[in-house]
Design a protein around this nucleic acid. Structure first.
Length: 696
DNA sequence: ACGGCTATAACC
DNA sequence: TGGTTATAG
């Protein structure tokens, strides 16, 4: 839900940069013969030619649109080249596009605060850069304005055909211009330069909007595509919004926009002006109401967040209609595939950005056979994220069983013989969130990872820049017998998932053959939470429904979450036999520092005199001003170490004793100032939030 | 019961 | 905190 934020009185310079049909450009760079030809990116070519997810501009001329099927696109545009999205583990793998997006971000973040808004969009706050530039070089003194900047579209500037360029040049150079216009002109110069750098270094074109806030910048970036930029002077805002269809506004493309139309008869942003703020608040709550009143006037105080990295990672797949999963073993198989992808992305994030994710979530959707109305969403379930592929997979399966039992408990569905007779699973996804940066002081932990021979397999598969040599080794290890991969019979499950309040069920065995730091890594997450928290944890896993075939087993042992605990020798053997040290090995497998595309790319950047994206990310996002924790800015969390401090309370002190002495010292130092949890949350401090009562 | 997959934010 | 819902590309 949109939230109103005050807009500071000082004018800002905000740019929104949007890559042009990004996936298509990525494919065209990979395969340059496609350049200039009508091209679209398609996924799942099997059914009616697959679904288009990106369409190049040459193809758009023929009327090819997203959400056509591949076959239909061929009909309207017989010459179209349909490129398939890469597939890994039986599902679409977007890593190439994500990585290409990172390339762009690493360039765009060179000037000003940078927020990665999506895989192919970025916001920049250029206010400071522009002020500096204007101080040194007032535009009216500029002899030349770059070609690219001259090509800018300036809203509200009346152009007389052939003299358009002169008009724009004059607009840039006017010495009597409104101060705000000078700011935007400066911003446009910088953005034009950045866009050229992006083109030079990545071969990608993009479009941009330059305005005084995010909303207007976003609006403008889409107005002249591809490869152009649009400026929104303050004086043009009123007219621009007046006739703009309400649904074109970000956040109003969905139900809220529909409600505005249906309930208030608002069709353009201008129509909103007639409503008092009280009326809008009455209809949509204080936050949304205020926000609506503001955007009608082109006011949007939303800050550009300094964030170059995603706040969560997810991997999911749908199984529509006849492809719905009917057996637990099918679910398990897919769950494991999804977990593998997630695991790889987590390891890459750890390696590249020194970040760990703390929450693991499973989403499943399903339908009840013979009952199309039985709604399809299972409740999602989360648990602390434990690093290590086997653990992630185990947790995913446990969460699935927990969710199934809950749901099944409600609906009294019999599930036996490995089949949900009445249910079919139509969607599965796993995600990792709650990501925090490991403080710089503990980075030496990372060197333990470097000592292992690893590779980042999915990226190796999907990214041609990658070093292929390191990939094979680990993937063979990965695929070796996993005790969990076999179909679950009821007995097997009963055994594996036995409620293990005794040490018997402990899955977090200490494994002596493995560098002890691994145990630390395994326990870094909320795995090792304080005892009193187990109550709720346990509760969230426990099954309170009536008897059924699955009901006999709570899915997760209490001891699992203790991180360390008492283990019998028998237990250790059982663990080593069943899991081998697969979870540990797998943890190490799949992350070769040399094989990351970031690093591969890094070389080219360094050759061209630029710094690596990795470094940029570190510098811009987490300026580590010293070894002490108090100065550690947690990057995506502008509130410094608040969130961090709060969460590190959860680390099990007993884990510390098992670490190498120097690491212990580091971690203790890191933990020291964390005692006081600051619970003030972002966003709640400025405005008082109401619960919104709305009819939509 | 075919628009798939991914991501963010707000709210309870 | 966990889980839901809305939104967007």
């Amino acid at each position: 839900m949109p939230v109103a934020r005050p807009e500071s009185s000082d004018s800002r310079v905000i740019a929104h940069i949007d890559m042009d049909c990004f996936y298509v450009q990525v494919e065209q760079r990979k395969q340059p013969t496609l350049r200039g030809h009508p091209t679209a990116v398609v996924q799942y070519n099997s059914w009616k030619g697959g679904a288009l997810i990106a369409v190049g501009y040459e193809a758009r001329k023929y009327g090819v649109k997203r959400s056509l099927r591949g076959d239909e696109a061929k009909k309207v545009c017989p010459d179209i080249h349909l490129v398939q999205v890469p597939v890994a583990r039986g599902k679409a793998d977007l890593s190439v596009y994500r990585n290409a997006g990172s390339e762009v971000v690493s360039i765009l973040s060179r000037k000003g605060r940078c927020e990665r808004a999506s895989i192919d969009e970025v916001y920049l706050d250029l206010t400071e850069a522009v002020k500096t530039m204007l101080a040194e070089n007032p535009p009216e003194r500029l002899e030349t304005i770059s070609e690219e900047a001259i090509k800018s579209h300036v809203l509200g500037l009346h152009l007389d055909g052939a003299k358009a360029r002169d008009c724009v040049r004059e607009w840039f150079l006017r010495s009597d211009a409104d101060h705000r216009d000078k700011l935007l002109a400066g911003g446009a110069l910088i953005v034009a330069e950045l866009r050229l750098q992006v083109l030079r270094e990545t071969e990608f074109t993009c479009s941009a909007g330059i305005a005084h806030n995010k909303m207007l910048a976003k609006l403008a970036s889409g107005m002249n595509k591809p490869a152009q930029q649009t400026i929104v002077p303050y004086s043009s805002v009123k007219k621009l919004l007046e006739s703009l269809p309400i649904k074109k506004m970000k956040q109003l493309g969905g139900k809220l926009g529909t409600s505005l139309q249906a309930d208030l008869g608002v069709n353009t942003v201008g129509d909103l002006l007639q409503f008092s703020v009280e009326k809008l608040q009455e209809c949509y709550g204080i936050n949304t109401g205020t926000w609506l009143w503001n955007i009608a006037r082109g006011i949007c105080g939303e800050e550009v967040q300094s964030r170059l990295l995603p706040k969560s990672h997810g991997s999911g797949k749908t199984f529509p209609g006849p492809r719905a999963l009917k057996t637990v073993s099918a679910v398990q198989k897919w769950l494991y595939e999804l977990c593998e992808e997630l695991n790889e992305r987590l390891l890459c994030d750890l390696e590249q950005n020194k970040r760990i994710a703390r929450t693991f979530t499973l989403h499943a959707s399903a339908y009840k056979v013979n009952d199309s109305e039985s709604l399809k969403k299972f409740p999602s379930k989360s648990c602390p994220l434990r690093y290590g592929i086997a653990k992630i997979q185990e947790d995913a399966l446990n969460l699935f069983h927990a969710v199934l039992r809950e749901y099944v408990g409600i609906y009294h569905v019999r599930t036996k013989e490995n089949k949900h007779h009445e249910w079919a699973i139509t969607g599965l996804s796993v995600s990792a969130s709650n990501i925090v940066v490991i403080p710089s002081g503990t980075h030496s932990i990372m060197k333990y990872f470097h000592n292992q021979n690893q590779s980042c397999t999915s990226i190796n598969k999907s990214n041609d820049i990658c070093n292929q040599d390191t990939a094979s080794l680990s993937s063979s290890g990965l695929l070796l017998a996993d005790p969990q991969i076999e179909t679950y019979g009821d007995e097997a499950r009963a055994k594996d998932d036995m409620p293990s309040l005794s040490p018997d069920g402990d899955g977090t065995e200490v494994c002596k053959d493995v560098p002890v730091v691994m145990q630390f890594a395994d326990n870094l997450g909320p795995t090792s939470i304080e005892t009193e928290q187990h109550g709720s944890m346990e509760e969230s896993f426990s099954y309170s429904g009536s008897e059924n075939d699955l009901g006999s087993k709570p899915t997760q042992s209490k001891m699992d979450f203790l991180g360390t605990g008492l283990k019998s020798e028998k237990q250790k053997r059982k663990f080593e036999k069943e899991k081998g040290n697969t979870s540990i090995l797998r943890f190490f497998h799949g992350c070769d520092p040399c094989s990351f595309p970031e690093n591969a790319r890094l070389k080219t950047f360094e050759e061209s005199g630029a710094s690596s994206s990795g470094k940029l990310i570190q510098e811009n996002q987490q300026p580590m001003t010293g070894p002490t924790l108090s100065t550690c800015n947690m990057g995506q969390d502008d509130f410094r170490s608040d969130a961090w401090r709060y969460k590190t309370d959860e680390i099990d002190p007993t884990v510390l004793n098992e670490l190498p002495p120097e690491i212990q010292a580091e971690v203790r130092a890191w933990l020291q100032p964390q005692k006081r949890a600051n619970t003030v949350k972002r966003g709640s401090s400025i405005f008082h939030y109401f619960s919104r009562t709305t009819d939509s």
